[in-house]
Simulated assay, not measured.
Amino acid sequence: MTRVGYEPYEPQLTISPQAEDIWTVEGPEVQYRLAGALIPCPTRMTVVKLANGTLWLHSPVAYSANLQQTLDALGPVSAIIAPNSYHYLQVDAWASTNADATVFASADVAHKIAAKPIALGGKLVADWSADIDHISVELGKFSETVFFHRPSQSLVVTDLMQTFEASRVRSLFVRLLLKLGGATGPNAKPSIEIRLAARKHRDELRVGVEQMIAWNPRRVILSHGACIQNNSVDAIESAFRWLKN
Rank of each mutant, 00 (worst) to 15 (best):
N98T: 03
L74H: 10
K141W: 10
A65T: 11
L120D: 02
L160F: 03
A35M: 15
P190W: 07
K123H: 14
V91I: 11
S171W: 07
I192W: 11
S143K: 12
V4A: 06
N230I: 13
I192T: 07
L176F: 13
E144C: 07
N245G: 12
L139M: 04
L178Y: 00
A119Q: 12
Y6R: 00
A51C: 09
N187Q: 14
L71V: 08
Q162W: 01
A119D: 08
I22S: 02
K49F: 00
L178E: 01
G225M: 07
A110K: 08
A126W: 09
L50S: 06
F173M: 09
K200A: 09
T158C: 15
R168M: 06
V30G: 13
Q211M: 04
H134D: 10
N216L: 04
G140Q: 06
E144G: 07
T14D: 12
E26T: 08
P28I: 05
V61Y: 03
P8D: 01
S85W: 01
S59Q: 03
E26V: 01
A198W: 01
I213A: 04
P217A: 05
F104V: 06
D133F: 09
L139G: 03
S78C: 08
R3H: 12
L172E: 15
V125G: 03
R202P: 03
V156M: 02
V4F: 08
V77R: 03
V125Y: 11
S106T: 03
V30S: 12
A62K: 13
F240H: 08
H149V: 05
I135L: 12
A197Q: 09
P8S: 04
E138G: 02
V137R: 04
D108V: 05
M1Q: 13
Y32R: 12
D100P: 02
N187F: 13
V137K: 02
E20L: 12
M45E: 14
